[in-house]
Design a protein around this nucleic acid. Structure first.
Lengths: 146, 146
DNA sequence: TTCCTTGCAAACGATTTGCATTGGA
DNA sequence: TCCAATGCAAATCGTTTGCAAGGAA
């Protein structure tokens, strides 16, 4: 089995809990690593060719989320999509297509991100809310729908 | 019936479609106007004291969303919350509490909002995505959970 | 052997819909 | 009058869970 750097990071993180890095969980991680945005359980189920039943897939996602390896994302009515956690995938933001609902990752360059952090910090200070994270979602029409 | 300015705006907007501004729909609007953040159908159902059955409430929300009077918001697994549309409530952002999941509206002052708009515009330009809207979600611990 | 993990099927909670009835312009 | 809106109950959909069987340390 090709053990990538990603696999090693995940394996190490899971090892710290009492969690095994099994075949099904590897499949989830592999599928998420190949995606360019958050993916739903159903998406992943298809992408890994039903290699794992949906119920197990959900359980894997729950466990991986608990271990901080994947993170949930909500932007569409009723469905939860997952992506690799930021420490694995890097901090990024999302483009949400108003027509087809797909979500795409974007990274913004240092100066812009720094400016954004500044804004978030200013807001936090202004209202005594301690911001532990921020997410900028940009809505519009994706290339395919434009 | 006390017909507020808000009621008149909503009534006018609905009138442009073939949509009636009924008792149940007025109750929804009133409840949303009183809220300081997005509210789920279940929340509203309680707030209006079951004056309207859940199924009708959902239908009202769907219609009101279609007419551009309310807007959905997604930030918690499996539940959709609604708020008055921006042209009624003003442009704002959200604080999402990581512990209790409540969402609170915040408005940020002109200079900060202008800076944010600049960032969003820059991003759009950089990746040829036409941003029609943006949402900044700040996660942290709310006053009650901190 | 000892738990963690998996599969399958049943259970759930949020939301939607069919259909007959009510109601507003 | 006439079509939109409502209520209720049944149906859907995404997701979760009980339980018995399988698998890794």
């Amino acid at each position: 089995m090709a053990t990538s750097a990603l696999d090693r990071q995940v394996e190490h993180r899971l090892g710290e809990s009492q969690v095994r890095y099994t075949r099904g969980r590897r499949a989830v991680i592999r599928a998420l690593a190949a995606a360019d945005g958050p993916r739903s359980a159903a998406d992943l189920h298809v992408q890994i060719r039903h290699e794992v039943p949906l119920s197990s897939l959900y359980r894997s996602l729950t466990v991986l989320e608990g271990a901080g390896v994947v993170a949930p994302h909500y932007s569409t009515k009723g469905i939860t999509r997952y992506e690799l956690a930021e420490w694995l995938a890097g901090h990024h933001h999302h483009l949400v297509c108003l027509d087809c609902g797909t979500v795409e990752d974007i990274e913004i360059d240092r100066p812009l991100e720094a400016a954004l952090e500044g804004i978030v910090a200013d807001i936090g200070a202004a209202i005594s809310f301690d911001p532990s994270n921020h997410a900028l979602e940009i809505e519009g029409r994706c290339a395919r729908c434009a």
